[in-house]
Design a protein around this nucleic acid. Structure first.
Lengths: 104, 104
DNA sequence: GGAATATTTCGAGATGTGTCGAAATAAGAC
DNA sequence: GTCTTATTTCGACACATCTCGAAATATTCC
Protein backbone atom coordinates (compact mmCIF):
# COMPACT_ATOMS: atom_id res chain seq x y z
CA UNK A 1 0.00 0.00 0.00
CA UNK A 2 1.61 3.24 -1.13
CA UNK A 3 0.54 6.81 -0.58
CA UNK A 4 -0.97 7.18 -4.05
CA UNK A 5 -3.17 4.13 -3.68
CA UNK A 6 -4.26 5.06 -0.19
CA UNK A 7 -5.08 8.61 -1.33
CA UNK A 8 -7.20 7.28 -4.19
CA UNK A 9 -9.19 5.05 -1.88
CA UNK A 10 -9.61 7.79 0.70
CA UNK A 11 -10.78 10.15 -2.01
CA UNK A 12 -13.25 7.56 -3.22
CA UNK A 13 -14.73 7.37 0.26
CA UNK A 14 -14.42 11.11 0.77
CA UNK A 15 -17.73 11.98 -0.85
CA UNK A 16 -20.94 11.84 1.15
CA UNK A 17 -22.87 10.04 -1.56
CA UNK A 18 -20.18 7.45 -2.11
CA UNK A 19 -19.68 6.96 1.61
CA UNK A 20 -23.40 6.30 1.95
CA UNK A 21 -23.27 3.84 -0.91
CA UNK A 22 -20.32 2.09 0.61
CA UNK A 23 -21.89 1.99 4.04
CA UNK A 24 -25.09 0.54 2.65
CA UNK A 25 -23.06 -2.18 0.95
CA UNK A 26 -21.10 -2.96 4.09
CA UNK A 27 -24.31 -3.28 6.05
CA UNK A 28 -25.76 -5.51 3.39
CA UNK A 29 -22.92 -7.92 4.06
CA UNK A 30 -21.93 -10.87 1.89
CA UNK A 31 -25.27 -10.85 0.17
CA UNK A 32 -24.65 -7.45 -1.40
CA UNK A 33 -27.22 -5.14 -2.94
CA UNK A 34 -28.53 -4.63 -6.49
CA UNK A 35 -27.83 -1.24 -8.06
CA UNK A 36 -31.53 -0.46 -8.18
CA UNK A 37 -31.94 -1.13 -4.51
CA UNK A 38 -29.05 1.19 -3.76
CA UNK A 39 -30.71 3.85 -5.87
CA UNK A 40 -33.93 3.56 -3.87
CA UNK A 41 -32.03 3.71 -0.59
CA UNK A 42 -29.99 6.77 -1.48
CA UNK A 43 -32.30 8.59 -3.83
CA UNK A 44 -30.14 9.84 -6.70
CA UNK A 45 -30.33 9.52 -10.47
CA UNK A 46 -29.33 6.14 -11.78
CA UNK A 47 -26.63 7.72 -13.90
CA UNK A 48 -25.18 9.50 -10.91
CA UNK A 49 -25.13 6.30 -8.91
CA UNK A 50 -23.47 4.48 -11.78
CA UNK A 51 -20.80 7.16 -11.86
CA UNK A 52 -20.09 6.83 -8.16
CA UNK A 53 -20.10 3.05 -8.28
CA UNK A 54 -17.48 3.20 -10.99
CA UNK A 55 -15.25 5.23 -8.77
CA UNK A 56 -15.63 2.80 -5.91
CA UNK A 57 -14.99 -0.11 -8.24
CA UNK A 58 -11.95 1.60 -9.78
CA UNK A 59 -10.34 1.68 -6.36
CA UNK A 60 -11.36 -1.93 -5.68
CA UNK A 61 -13.42 -0.92 -2.68
CA UNK A 62 -16.51 -2.42 -4.32
CA UNK A 63 -17.07 -5.38 -6.61
CA UNK A 64 -19.93 -6.23 -8.92
CA UNK A 65 -21.41 -9.50 -10.05
CA UNK A 66 -24.17 -9.95 -12.55
CA UNK A 67 -27.21 -12.03 -11.66
CA UNK A 68 -29.49 -12.11 -14.66
CA UNK A 69 -30.53 -8.55 -15.42
CA UNK A 70 -29.46 -7.13 -12.09
CA UNK A 71 -25.97 -6.25 -10.93
CA UNK A 72 -25.13 -7.13 -7.36
CA UNK A 73 -22.68 -4.81 -5.62
CA UNK A 74 -20.58 -5.85 -2.65
CA UNK A 75 -18.12 -4.14 -0.36
CA UNK A 76 -14.61 -5.51 -0.74
CA UNK A 77 -13.63 -6.02 2.87
CA UNK A 78 -9.98 -6.96 2.39
CA UNK A 79 -9.34 -3.73 0.54
CA UNK A 80 -10.89 -1.66 3.28
CA UNK A 81 -8.94 -3.64 5.79
CA UNK A 82 -5.75 -2.80 3.93
CA UNK A 83 -6.63 0.87 3.96
CA UNK A 84 -7.35 0.82 7.67
CA UNK A 85 -4.07 -0.94 8.19
CA UNK A 86 -2.24 1.74 6.25
CA UNK A 87 -3.86 4.51 8.25
CA UNK A 88 -3.21 2.76 11.52
CA UNK A 89 0.40 1.95 10.68
CA UNK A 90 1.23 5.33 9.23
CA UNK A 91 -0.88 7.59 11.26
CA UNK A 92 -1.96 6.30 14.63
CA UNK A 93 0.51 3.63 15.53
CA UNK A 94 0.16 4.13 19.24
CA UNK A 95 -3.49 5.07 19.26
CA UNK A 96 -4.85 2.08 17.41
CA UNK A 97 -3.54 -1.44 17.40
CA UNK A 98 -4.27 -3.05 14.08
CA UNK A 99 -1.96 -5.30 12.19
CA UNK A 100 0.88 -4.68 14.57
CA UNK A 101 1.19 -8.15 15.96
CA UNK A 102 1.40 -9.91 12.65
CA UNK A 103 3.03 -7.08 10.70
CA UNK A 104 5.75 -8.11 8.28
CA UNK B 1 -19.36 11.26 13.91
CA UNK B 2 -21.83 11.53 11.04
CA UNK B 3 -21.39 10.66 7.39
CA UNK B 4 -20.83 14.24 6.32
CA UNK B 5 -18.03 14.82 8.80
CA UNK B 6 -16.38 11.51 8.02
CA UNK B 7 -16.59 12.23 4.29
CA UNK B 8 -14.97 15.64 4.76
CA UNK B 9 -12.09 14.14 6.70
CA UNK B 10 -11.64 11.33 4.23
CA UNK B 11 -11.65 13.81 1.38
CA UNK B 12 -9.05 15.89 3.19
CA UNK B 13 -6.79 12.85 3.40
CA UNK B 14 -7.73 11.72 -0.11
CA UNK B 15 -5.13 13.82 -1.90
CA UNK B 16 -1.58 12.58 -2.30
CA UNK B 17 -0.03 15.87 -1.30
CA UNK B 18 -2.19 16.24 1.78
CA UNK B 19 -1.69 12.62 2.76
CA UNK B 20 2.06 13.15 2.56
CA UNK B 21 1.77 16.26 4.67
CA UNK B 22 -0.32 14.46 7.22
CA UNK B 23 1.99 11.48 7.30
CA UNK B 24 5.00 13.71 7.82
CA UNK B 25 3.22 15.35 10.75
CA UNK B 26 2.28 12.03 12.27
CA UNK B 27 5.83 10.85 12.05
CA UNK B 28 7.04 14.07 13.59
CA UNK B 29 4.99 13.20 16.66
CA UNK B 30 4.16 15.55 19.51
CA UNK B 31 6.94 17.89 18.53
CA UNK B 32 5.29 18.73 15.22
CA UNK B 33 6.88 20.41 12.22
CA UNK B 34 7.19 24.03 11.07
CA UNK B 35 5.46 24.90 7.79
CA UNK B 36 8.79 25.66 6.16
CA UNK B 37 10.17 22.29 7.09
CA UNK B 38 7.12 20.62 5.59
CA UNK B 39 7.66 22.59 2.41
CA UNK B 40 11.25 21.36 2.14
CA UNK B 41 10.17 17.78 2.78
CA UNK B 42 7.40 17.76 0.21
CA UNK B 43 8.68 20.23 -2.35
CA UNK B 44 5.72 22.37 -3.33
CA UNK B 45 5.09 26.10 -3.46
CA UNK B 46 4.51 27.69 -0.09
CA UNK B 47 1.12 28.94 -1.21
CA UNK B 48 0.08 25.47 -2.27
CA UNK B 49 1.17 24.02 1.03
CA UNK B 50 -0.72 26.72 2.88
CA UNK B 51 -3.84 25.86 0.91
CA UNK B 52 -3.57 22.18 1.77
CA UNK B 53 -2.81 22.87 5.41
CA UNK B 54 -5.97 24.92 5.61
CA UNK B 55 -7.99 22.01 4.40
CA UNK B 56 -6.46 19.70 6.95
CA UNK B 57 -7.00 22.27 9.68
CA UNK B 58 -10.59 22.87 8.56
CA UNK B 59 -11.35 19.22 9.22
CA UNK B 60 -9.49 19.33 12.54
CA UNK B 61 -7.03 16.70 11.41
CA UNK B 62 -4.16 19.13 11.96
CA UNK B 63 -3.57 21.91 14.45
CA UNK B 64 -1.20 24.87 14.36
CA UNK B 65 0.61 26.74 17.07
CA UNK B 66 2.76 29.78 16.62
CA UNK B 67 6.28 29.84 18.00
CA UNK B 68 7.76 33.24 17.23
CA UNK B 69 7.85 33.62 13.44
CA UNK B 70 7.29 29.99 12.69
CA UNK B 71 4.06 28.04 12.77
CA UNK B 72 4.28 24.55 14.18
CA UNK B 73 1.87 22.01 12.69
CA UNK B 74 0.79 18.88 14.49
CA UNK B 75 -1.37 15.90 13.66
CA UNK B 76 -4.51 15.76 15.77
CA UNK B 77 -4.50 12.15 16.87
CA UNK B 78 -7.89 12.03 18.59
CA UNK B 79 -9.60 13.19 15.40
CA UNK B 80 -7.90 10.53 13.33
CA UNK B 81 -8.76 8.02 15.98
CA UNK B 82 -12.40 9.04 15.71
CA UNK B 83 -12.31 8.63 11.95
CA UNK B 84 -10.76 5.18 12.23
CA UNK B 85 -13.39 4.29 14.76
CA UNK B 86 -16.13 5.39 12.40
CA UNK B 87 -14.69 3.35 9.55
CA UNK B 88 -14.18 0.35 11.74
CA UNK B 89 -17.63 0.53 13.28
CA UNK B 90 -19.46 1.22 10.08
CA UNK B 91 -17.44 -0.66 7.62
CA UNK B 92 -15.29 -3.44 8.96
CA UNK B 93 -16.72 -4.35 12.30
CA UNK B 94 -15.55 -7.91 12.18
CA UNK B 95 -12.28 -7.28 10.41
CA UNK B 96 -10.80 -4.68 12.74
CA UNK B 97 -11.28 -4.35 16.44
CA UNK B 98 -11.03 -0.71 17.42
CA UNK B 99 -13.12 0.95 20.04
CA UNK B 100 -15.33 -2.05 20.44
CA UNK B 101 -14.33 -2.98 23.93
CA UNK B 102 -14.76 0.46 25.44
CA UNK B 103 -17.47 1.69 23.11
CA UNK B 104 -20.21 3.75 24.74
C1' DG C 1 -37.57 -11.49 -32.97
C1' DG C 2 -40.01 -8.14 -29.85
C1' DA C 3 -41.21 -6.40 -25.31
C1' DA C 4 -39.79 -5.50 -20.53
C1' DT C 5 -36.56 -4.50 -16.92
C1' DA C 6 -31.98 -3.10 -15.20
C1' DT C 7 -28.11 -0.48 -15.81
C1' DT C 8 -24.73 2.23 -18.35
C1' DT C 9 -23.01 5.66 -21.52
C1' DC C 10 -23.38 10.25 -23.57
C1' DG C 11 -23.62 15.16 -23.49
C1' DA C 12 -23.68 19.17 -20.87
C1' DG C 13 -23.64 22.67 -17.24
C1' DA C 14 -22.37 24.31 -12.69
C1' DT C 15 -19.16 24.10 -9.28
C1' DG C 16 -14.85 22.78 -6.92
C1' DT C 17 -9.82 21.55 -6.82
C1' DG C 18 -4.79 22.00 -7.38
C1' DT C 19 -1.29 24.63 -8.64
C1' DC C 20 1.58 28.63 -9.15
C1' DG C 21 3.85 33.42 -8.63
C1' DA C 22 3.47 37.87 -6.75
C1' DA C 23 2.10 40.75 -3.23
C1' DA C 24 0.67 41.29 1.55
C1' DT C 25 0.89 40.28 6.46
C1' DA C 26 2.99 38.64 11.08
C1' DA C 27 6.61 38.40 14.41
C1' DG C 28 10.84 39.24 15.97
C1' DA C 29 15.94 41.30 15.62
C1' DC C 30 18.82 45.25 15.35
C1' DG D 1 11.44 52.26 12.90
C1' DT D 2 13.53 49.29 9.47
C1' DC D 3 15.07 44.81 7.99
C1' DT D 4 14.69 39.83 7.78
C1' DT D 5 12.40 35.61 7.93
C1' DA D 6 8.10 32.89 7.86
C1' DT D 7 3.74 32.30 6.17
C1' DT D 8 -0.65 33.63 4.11
C1' DT D 9 -3.74 35.83 0.88
C1' DC D 10 -4.86 37.18 -3.82
C1' DG D 11 -5.66 36.43 -8.61
C1' DA D 12 -5.66 33.32 -12.16
C1' DC D 13 -5.53 29.23 -14.95
C1' DA D 14 -6.20 24.34 -16.23
C1' DC D 15 -8.52 20.56 -15.05
C1' DA D 16 -11.64 17.36 -12.45
C1' DT D 17 -16.01 16.42 -10.12
C1' DC D 18 -21.00 16.09 -9.42
C1' DT D 19 -25.18 16.12 -11.10
C1' DC D 20 -28.92 15.38 -14.31
C1' DG D 21 -31.99 13.63 -18.31
C1' DA D 22 -32.06 11.24 -22.55
C1' DA D 23 -30.52 7.73 -25.29
C1' DA D 24 -28.15 3.34 -25.68
C1' DT D 25 -26.97 -1.31 -24.15
C1' DA D 26 -27.54 -5.88 -21.72
C1' DT D 27 -30.24 -9.68 -20.21
C1' DT D 28 -34.18 -12.29 -19.86
C1' DC D 29 -39.06 -13.65 -20.96
C1' DC D 30 -42.61 -14.69 -24.25
Amino acid sequence: MNVETAAKQLEALGNPTRLRVYRALVRAGEEGLPVGHLQDKIGIAASTLSHHLHRLIATALVTQERQATTLICRANYPVMHGLLGFLADECCVDAVSIKRDNAA
